[in-house]
Design a binder for these strands. Structure first.
Lengths: 118, 118
DNA sequence: TCAATCATTCAAGGATTGTTGAAATATGGA
DNA sequence: TCCATATTTCAACAATCCTTGAATGATTGA
């Protein structure tokens, strides 16, 4: 994730509807959700959800693929991880203490790490 | 860091000048930088830097304090860490694999953790 | 008090972003 | 082919954000 992409991704996440969509897609997992289902759950109009999905796709945080009549959107885990990493590297490079609290959260992904931080 | 603050913080970081300022302040450390010095290093006008500093302060990512004629700005490490955490918790809750790459970066803050991840 | 310095505020204008509803496109089944 | 479904695109308008330069406010030293 380079700075240009990070700027776009931060902008993408700075809008309430879009943040909600990303959260929904992360929870939905690899199967993703159809545009219509996203619109319904997010309680916005089809054309409005389309507008926001386009912006999210531009940011790289989500991806789309057609499946019959529906268009299925999925969270891009790699991009999301890349954004976390971008933010942490900025911070850690200057002052590691910023990352310390975040490290605790990261620990959930690595059982051995979790012991380490007790 | 609640969602409302996160939205504002993402918006704050989605602008090139502001992202540059945050990076400068993180590197500057606890001593911070005066508004004039920030303007000079970021190559923007005083009134423009003031506009962006205000937005960053509203987001909670930086703080100010007057020192004689200067106003000194410093990065708010806690808020930055909180934002990283917000992003990670969103991700991890759904799918831990997102955090795995970020965990590697987090490791820099904990030598023991670093071994663990070789 | 006066002038100099450092910074913010304000108003105006341009640029970008978000919302809406109508029209267009793509797909699959009758 | 014709229709229904799923979604996007478009144009218009509103709202927000960014930039600029001039005016204002705060602090210090002469």
């Amino acid at each position: 994730m380079d700075q240009r992409q990070a700027l776009i991704a931060f902008g993408a996440l700075s809008q309430e509807t879009r943040l909600r969509i990303v959260r929904m897609l992360v929870v939905a997992g690899p199967n993703g959700m159809a545009a219509g289902a996203i619109a319904e759950q997010a309680e916005v109009s089809p054309s409005n959800v389309s507008f926001h999905l386009k912006e999210l796709e531009r940011s790289g945080l989500i991806a789309q693929q057609r499946e019959s009549r529906s268009i299925i959107y999925t969270a891009n885990y790699e991009a999301l991880g890349g954004l976390v990493r971008f933010l942490m590297e900025d911070c850690c490079s200057g002052h590691p203490e910023i990352c310390a609290p975040a490290a605790k959260v990261a620990a959930c992904c690595s059982p051995k790490m979790e012991e380490e931080l007790q």
